[in-house]
Design a protein around this nucleic acid. Structure first.
Length: 475
RNA sequence: GGCGCUAUCGUCUAACGGUUAGGACAGAGCCCUCUCAAGGCUUAAAUACGAGUUCGAUUCUCGUUAGCGCUACCA
């Protein structure tokens, strides 16, 4: 049974990178008939905010993809603690009584490469139990096996086989000194309990996965399939952060600027994933049908934006394409919502009349407020009548168009003109020098070429003439 | 510092080891056009660097460089 999960933590608004992770999880689940689970990873009580939680649900609801099951880690603390007890009882973890502050000083910065606190690993279980019962503060750490096990490995569906020396993995914490589980423990315990089959998440967790594999093994659970996604980064290659880049990294900003959710999803999918057949505009059904881990790229993708132009131009273009292909009544309904939200009273019938007039002029839904403002104004600003084209200068042509009389009607003349142009173009192509026609001009002259190569070369040499034949016709 | 991951036009990306390195966005030009769009056509623009394997490397291997990630009682 296929079970996928998206596990955001409510420590900030819904980030576009998180949204993409959700979308990829969802696409894989829907593509293969799996179950989509939303799990709120709220183990960090101090940083959680209700506002963040609201932002996450707001964003996810706008995307409109939905999920099948929903959990909250804070409801499952007993499970996490039980998991920690199990690992401790097996002798695969130990209590570390080092005070929290001392660690910072003697930690990674000074020695460079910190693995564990000396002496803590070897404390006998009886002494450990006694000190814990006496009320001494401790952290439960995973006892990374460094003698028996040489390497930890797993196969990533995107990055391939991964292996790491156990000697390079530090003894990470499972339980904090206040008894609450850390992310690593809570996440793995829940993934095992919920029978998650595929973990699709950001590449920032790639090196954490070695730790997670160890936890899964300690819990006698088979590790799920992992698929890590390349990260979304800012134009300077750095991390996308709200503090540095403002609201452009929040999903709700795109909603409020007039993006269509399907266009936004389309855009995010094209960042780090490709259908490999040059398709750009894709519907939700097409995306679902085409999605696979093989199409996922391995390098980080830049989201292009500037202060003057806060949205990636490609996202805006995709949005305009989705607007063009949206049925008129649907688009009218969307625009009506936007216009009414701006405090303008319009009825549906009027909006339906305005929509075809603005459809090709708007790239974001909110552009309608500028492009069609004169429809909503009760009195127009003053203008120079000389700028207007007098009606009598126009003439109704047989084809049904209003045109100036001295200009030919487009449906009568262009056929001939286009033909002329086409002939000219063909001549231009024919006169263009075609390289590599003779074998002596082939690269590495004299080298033995396989037969199929020469077939290819002939095809390429013949291409210009084919191109002339495939010139699009006017109608 | 240690460990890991990555590297194709400005950006997103394509290319069984054999292509004139393809497409899209953004840019430039032309056409269409009463305007603005939309659309059509054209154009400029890339395999980070250095070795190796091979008849042949964007593709495989190694090194260098650069970027990113992890290295928390954050997630």
């Amino acid at each position: 049974m296929l079970r996928l999960r998206f596990a955001p933590s409510p420590t900030g608004f819904l980030h576009i990178g998180s949204a993409r992770t959700f979308i990829f999880n969802w696409l894989y689940a829907r593509r293969n008939g799996g179950t989509m689970i939303l799990r709120i990873d709220d183990t960090d009580i101090e940083r959680n905010t209700q506002q963040s939680l609201d932002s996450i649900f707001e964003g996810l609801h706008w995307l409109g993809l939905g999920w099948d099951e929903q959990y909250r880690q804070s409801d499952r603390l007993a499970l996490h603690k039980a998991a920690a007890e199990t690992i401790l009882a097996k002798g695969l973890a130990y209590r570390d009584f080092t005070p929290a502050m001392a660690e910072r000083e003697s930690g990674s910065a000074a020695s460079g490469g910190w693995l564990f606190h000396p002496g803590q690993r070897e404390i006998p279980l009886e002494e450990s139990n006694r000190r814990a019962a006496a009320g001494e503060k401790f952290v439960v750490r995973f006892k990374v096996p460094r003698e028996a096990v040489q390497t930890v490995g797993f196969r990533d569906a995107v990055y391939g086989d991964q292996e790491k020396l156990a000697a390079d993995i530090e003894d990470f914490a499972l339980l904090r000194s206040d008894g609450t589980p850390t992310y690593h423990l809570a996440s793995c315990a829940d993934d095992a309990d919920l029978h998650i089959s595929h973990i699709v998440r950001g590449q920032d967790h790639l090196t954490n996965t070695f730790k997670h594999v160890l936890i899964f093994q300690a819990l006698d659970a088979t590790p799920p399939t992992f698929a890590h996604l390349p990260l979304l980064v800012a134009p300077d290659g750095g991390k996308l952060s709200k503090r540095k880049h403002g609201p452009v990294v929040s999903v709700t900003t795109y909603r409020d600027a007039g993006f269509l959710p399907q266009a936004f999803i389309n855009f995010l999918c094209l960042l780090g994933w490709s259908p490999k057949d040059d398709r750009e505009q894709m519907s939700q059904a097409e995306l679902t049908a085409a999605f696979s881990f093989e199409g996922i790229n391995r390098s980080n993708a830049v989201v292009n934006f500037t202060e003057a132009d806060p949205f990636d131009p490609k996202a805006v273009w995709l949005n305009s394409q989705h607007i063009h292909s949206l049925p008129l009544p649907d688009l009218a309904a969307e625009l009506l919502r936007v216009v009414r939200a701006a405090g303008i009273a319009v009825d549906e019938a009027t909006m339906l009349l305005i929509t075809p007039l603005v459809r090709e002029r708007i790239r974001l839904l909110h552009d309608v407020l500028q492009v069609a403002d004169f429809f909503f104004a009760s009195d127009l600003p003053p203008y120079d009548p000389a700028e207007l084209i007098p009606k009598k200068a126009m003439r109704l042509w047989p084809c049904g168009h209003w045109k100036r009389p001295w200009r030919p009607c487009p449906s009568i003349f262009p056929t001939i003109r286009w033909k002329a142009a086409s002939v000219q173009r063909q001549r231009a192509w024919a006169s263009k020098p075609v390289r590599c026609l003779s074998p002596s001009a082939w690269p590495s002259a004299g080298a033995r070429l396989r037969p199929r190569c020469s077939v290819r070369w002939r095809f390429w040499a013949a291409r210009p003439r084919c191109a002339a034949l495939h010139m699009p016709s006017k109608n």
